[in-house]
Design a binder for these strands. Structure first.
Lengths: 208, 208
DNA sequence: TGAATAACCGACCGATAGGTTGGTAAAACT
DNA sequence: AGTTTTACCAACCTATCGGTCGGTTATTCA
């Protein structure tokens, strides 16, 4: 048994750390909705009292802010990596879809929360602004892919981008990490989005 | 001037009717979220007081119930009409997607609310149950279309159905009725979903 | 052993929520 | 004119919310 500790051994009375608190909170936020979840609910799920919860976090909004930040950061990291890729815009778009699915799967709970934000507070408005930023990025990529002839040009780029990521984002509604490797799902999404649902030609081609 | 009245002339003091109340409520529910919207907010938007609002409706939940019912009814009507259609399952699936987009566009606010329900109350759980019913219906149609060779069989039917309607449903996030006829959008969605984003024809496509 | 540190709790607070009560104002019907 | 019907309102009630306060318990470091 290795007794090596990743955390260098904390001072004071042992208990929950911020990550555990955040995880519990986000799980509840997603299950019941942010507004429908009270700080008492979060505390109860952790087995602590509400006042102890406030020892860990400054308030309910901080939990939301941390969650949406992790989601948004993940998406932008994926976007940055894809932008560095060389190759056609079509391939970059394809890879952005693939890596977005992986980010969604990996940070499922955080992204789920992000996608439900309505803009009621400054924290939420900031999250919405960053989402729009990401959307603009996708739209630009679609436009380039159309210009180079890689994807169909008979659809408005913004509309295509929205429908494409509407499909991608929808998986927070049903994807559960326990069943199936996310890579396979990412592949399915890319295939469906780019090649469509219809059988191609007369060849009943089956891939992998 | 015709003085014909569609409503046969109401008794008593004139004022708001249930439909107007519902419309105002649903608009706010969608803008700020159901839980984040108070009955005071709804009353204020109508220019009446909270107690007057309770003269029109029995409670907040009734508003939610009426809204999700209108959404769900619309979707099932579309599904029923499509089922009566003769032709391949592939065509029926295609038409279900098309008419679903039209229902979403026509009853946008109601469907938007439906798609955000979390299952916190019995009303919400009932709505979720009917959504699952609809999903099962779509999945079955996908399975049939795969069996007859109309759409690709290398994707799990349930997954395909979810991704397909994930794309369809996502338009409540951005579609606004003022710009553009919904028929054109429905066409775009069907085309993208079935034929994919990629350019058809003599593409220098190299399968990864 | 004792200071420092950190997790913890019970009791409380002001604001706001959904909902109720009892009564008034304006229209249609007779 | 008077009855009925309907829309309307001010004031109020109780529960719950996010958040605070003062003090306690468990652990590490010197």
């Amino acid at each position: 048994m290795d007794t090596v500790r990743s955390t260098p051994r904390r001072r004071g009375r042992p208990g929950h750390d911020l990550d555990a608190v955040l995880a519990a909170a986000v799980r509840l936020f997603n299950a019941r909705g942010y507004d429908a979840t009270s700080m008492f609910d979060v505390a109860e799920a952790l087995g602590i009292t509400k006042s102890t919860l406030y020892h860990h976090v400054s308030g309910k909004e901080q939990l939301l802010a941390m969650a949406v930040d992790r989601a948004v950061d993940g998406l932008f990291e994926a976007a940055a990596q894809v932008q560095d890729l060389q190759g056609t815009a079509t391939v970059r778009l394809q890879e952005l879809v693939r890596s977005s699915v992986l980010v969604l799967a990996e940070r499922l709970e955080f992204v789920t929360l992000l996608l439900r934000v309505r803009g009621n507070t400054q924290v939420e408005q900031h999250a919405l602004a960053r989402r729009r930023e990401f959307d603009a990025l996708v739209t630009e990529l679609v436009k380039q892919a159309q210009a180079e002839g890689g994807i169909r040009a008979d659809v408005d780029p913004a509309t295509a981008a929205r429908l494409l990521f509407g499909m991608v984002n929808s998986l927070v509604e049903w994807y559960r990490p326990e069943r199936g490797r996310p890579e396979a799902l990412a592949d399915t999404v890319v295939r469906l989005a780019f090649d469509g649902l219809r059988t191609i030609g007369p060849s009943d081609d089956q891939g992998d």
